[in-house]
Design a binder for these strands. Structure first.
Length: 800
DNA sequence: CCGCCAGCTGTTTTT
DNA sequence: CAGCTGGCGG
């Protein structure tokens, strides 16, 4: 089948010209600049479906990579709905998930045990702490957190210890720790997230047959959220893309909000240059929001200097104006919001009632959720907070997993230490230290060092190890469910939490772990996350029986034909090519737990208002969105304001926030906010000055001061108490010039003001605290940095 | 060895 | 304000 025919495929119906162009691109590198709400995921999945159904590629030739499991799952679901193809056999997954799959397949070449386990961020930190203690590294000078950041940062740059540039003694020490950490991980047979990526990259780089095989295999590489890729991920993609491959990168530079964790928007420009990209398509048609919302987003983001350039448009009308609200306090802001929501849900607004789950409250930092939660709770409005600990990160779950990991791999010292005295069994720091010394001398794991330890100190530990070893023997041959049940019992975890006053939830979670394992086995089919390729270490593919290729028999003939040629698209766990050894269900489940940390909160099904940070809202959409705390120092955040780059990222963050809304958008801020136990006086965010006045509707007068005047809830509905202002609903509402009635503090300073100091020169007020003689201002002086100044002493004069 | 209390430190997050 | 960590006392 050829493109002319393909154009008639039902797949391509209802795509706009740009989308269609993107979906049917020739097999060459391409960059799709996909604006918010422009149907990005649809284009990606349709592209894959189109390639498959026109016979241009077989399922095994596709590699599609995302950042989150959620995105990967969505892609597979949507693809599965479009084509009767077994999506599990394709390489669709997260960067780390795919690297895991790759390393499992080539564990020998990667120098890893077949059942290597993955350290999450917590595990990594405790491994580093342990190591630093052991080597007497001064934790004052080298905080473990900072060391962790150093190590992961370098891995993400693709740098091994010997490649890190050393510019000071401190650097030298850090590199030394980095090296020791690597040795420790290798000894224990564990890898961290960065290692999954880095080792995959190096294996591809250093092994020609392997690289060439995968390059030949993956003729189509599709990358989602390309603007979020870091240096190593980019290098990895470059390594996988062969002369015959075409890379389709989809991204939006305006939605790059993860620079703080190593994402390089510059990868987009590099990609265009280094891959000699021939096709660049902009998806600017937005299917999500009304134009008042979209115009606001467009005008705001236009204030950024470094952009590839893109403007969203919509066919929908202006819709409602963007409502702006100023509150005297953070509590008042929250209460107003709750009141507003009740109207929306009750349905006395213009467009009928709204579901609670279609209302989202966004904020810059998690700390802001507290006041809002209080207000919602008091008003008995159901709500759900995103963020916080995910299922597999909870302490009780991590403890259970640690037992399981020690069963699977006795050399996993991190896990060993986590549970050696939990539940408490009389093993103290003293005995553990002894054990660690013994292990270091013998150059073995803690587990193996036990037999060498003698005396009283060793007795308890000996009992522990014996218990683990017995458990390992006894659970051999049992199902995953049975293994976990046994471990939960025999470890004493369940009993321990049952005895605890508030342990009921934890016991429940442990039971939930059994369920999770059960559904992992039945639904997922164990080990499917760890499908290895039937290829030997010379890069020779091993032939599979067609029946085992996991293909739906109802597939279009053309796909089947291709699939039969493709010997590397199985959907089951292939054994090791030499020994026939395969990953145990337990090891597979542990991998799953590390790579997919699970949902973060229960009661997902309930119709509840959604609370989350702007970051976690990325990729989601809601009928109604409240963006709260739009204050200088909060959003944009204080820390970002010193550098221009930082401010641009804050602006992109705001852009992401605005574009989450479909129908209704509220922006609010408060003059006063309780932060770190102190009242802070804030001014409204500069972002307000960057929005189109015509699209906004101020529910409170601009710059209103709340010095005692009666303050009504400006809900915008005629039926409720309103302020005297802004009752009309026309989108092009021009704000009347309201006289600024200021009861300004004696010093007359506000955050955001430029001031002059006789010694430090000109600076910007970041915040003001305290009243009267206690009043202090935090001022950022370009020359001298950020200073706190007592206003009764320092003479600051405003600069105009 | 366990529990308590003082002191500190507070963006954003996925894997 | 609050949650967490680490140090110290029982």
């Amino acid at each position: 089948m050829f493109p002319e025919v393909a154009h008639e495929l039902p797949l391509l119906q209802n795509l706009n010209p740009e989308q269609k162009a993107a979906v049917t691109l020739p097999n060459e590198h391409a960059l799709i600049l996909a604006g918010a709400g422009s149907g990005k995921t649809r284009v990606l999945t349709t592209r894959i479906a189109w390639l498959l159904s026109t016979g241009q590629i077989s399922p095994g030739g596709v590699l599609a990579v995302t950042f989150t499991n959620k995105a990967a799952k969505e892609m597979m679901t949507r693809l599965g709905a479009m084509l009767p193809v077994n999506v599990r056999g394709m390489w669709i997954g997260t960067f780390h998930g795919l690297c895991n799959r790759f390393l499992r397949a080539h564990y020998k070449l990667a120098n890893l045990p077949q059942s290597f386990q993955i350290l999450d961020t917590q595990d990594q930190l405790s491994a580093i702490k342990r190591l630093m203690k052991q080597f007497n590294v001064d934790e004052e000078r080298f905080p473990a957190k900072q060391t962790q950041w150093f190590i992961s940062g370098n891995k993400e740059e693709g740098l091994r210890p010997n490649m890190v540039e050393v510019r000071s003694d401190e650097d030298r020490k850090k590199v030394e720790i980095y090296q020791l950490y690597e040795d420790q991980c290798n000894r224990e047979g564990v890898v961290d997230f960065g290692e999954l990526m880095l080792r995959s990259y190096e294996l591809l780089r250093d092994n020609d047959p392997i690289r060439e095989h995968y390059q030949r295999r993956f003729r189509h590489i599709l990358v989602d959220e390309f603007q979020d890729t870091n240096k190593l991920q980019y290098a990895w993609l470059k390594m996988l893309a062969g002369p015959e491959s075409s890379v389709l990168a989809v991204g939006d530079d305006d939605q790059s909000i993860y620079a703080f964790r190593g994402a390089r928007v510059g990868n987009m420009a590099d990609f265009v240059r280094e891959f000699e990209v021939k096709h660049q398509i902009k998806l600017e048609q937005n299917y999500r929001s009304f134009s008042n919302i979209l115009d606001s987003a467009n005008e705001l983001i236009a204030h950024n200097k470094t952009r590839l350039g893109k403007n969203l448009r919509t066919d929908q009308g202006p819709g409602e104006p963007v409502r702006v609200y100023e509150a005297p306090t953070d509590l008042a802001e929250a209460q107003w919001m709750v009141e507003e929501m009740r109207h929306l849900v009750r349905g006395d607004g213009p467009e009928g009632s709204m579901e609670r789950k279609e209302i989202a409250v966004l904020y810059r930092s998690n700390a802001q959720s507290r006041v809002i939660e209080t207000a919602l709770f008091n008003a008995a409005v159901p709500y759900r907070v995103y963020g916080g600990l995910r299922f597999f990160e909870r302490a009780e779950i991590k403890n259970a997993l640690a037992y399981l990991r020690v069963l699977e791999n006795p050399n996993d010292d991190t896990s060993f230490l986590r549970v050696v005295n939990f539940p408490p069994r009389g093993i103290g720091a003293r005995s553990i230290e002894q054990l660690q010394d013994a292990a270091r001398v013998a150059g073995c794991s803690l587990h193996d060092a036990v037999s060498a330890t003698t005396g009283k100190a060793g007795a308890n530990i000996g009992a522990f190890v014996a218990k683990i070893d017995v458990l390992r023997e006894r659970t051999a041959g049992l199902t995953l469910r049975e293994i976990i049940e046994q471990v939960l019992q025999e470890s004493g975890l369940v009993d321990h939490y049952k005895a605890e006053r508030e342990g009921a939830d934890r016991v429940e979670n442990l039971e939930e772990l059994v369920n999770a394992a059960e559904s992992f086995v039945t639904q997922e089919g164990f080990g499917r996350d760890a499908v290895a390729l039937p290829i030997d270490e010379h890069g020779t593919m091993l032939r599979q029986s067609p029946a085992s290729q996991g293909l739906d028999p109802s597939l279009p003939e053309v796909i089947l034909r291709h699939a039969q040629d493709d010997r590397t698209a199985p959907d089951y766990v292939p054994p090791d090519a030499e020994t026939g050894e395969t990953l145990s269900p337990l090891a597979a489940f542990l991998t799953h737990a590390a790579l997919e940390s699970g949902d973060n909160q229960a009661q997902a099904g309930q119709d509840a208002v959604q609370l989350m940070t702007v970051h976690s809202a990325k990729g989601l959409e809601f009928d109604c969105v409240f963006i709260t705390g739009l204050e200088e120092g909060l959003f944009p955040s204080e820390r970002s304001m010193t550098e221009y780059e930082g401010l641009e990222e804050e602006r992109r963050l705001m852009y992401v926030a605005i574009t989450r809304a479909r129908k209704r958008l509220y922006l609010s801020y408060s003059q006063t906010r309780l932060l770190h136990g102190q009242t802070r006086y804030n001014v409204k965010s500069r972002f307000f000055d960057e929005l189109p006045e015509g699209a906004l509707k101020w529910l409170t007068p601009k710059n209103q001061n709340f010095g005692g005047s009666a303050f009504g809830y400006g809900s915008g509905y005629p039926s409720t108490r309103t302020s005297n202002y802004s009752r009309d609903t026309t989108p092009s509402f021009a704000n009347p010039a309201v006289p600024v009635q200021k009861a300004a503090p004696a010093h007359g300073l506000r955050a955001g003001m430029k001031v002059f100091h006789t010694k430090f020169g000109e600076g910007t007020v970041l915040s003001i605290e305290g009243l009267g003689d206690d009043a202090r201002a935090q001022v950022n002086f370009p020359r001298h940095g950020i200073k706190w100044l007592a206003l009764s002493v320092a003479k600051l004069t405003p600069v105009t």
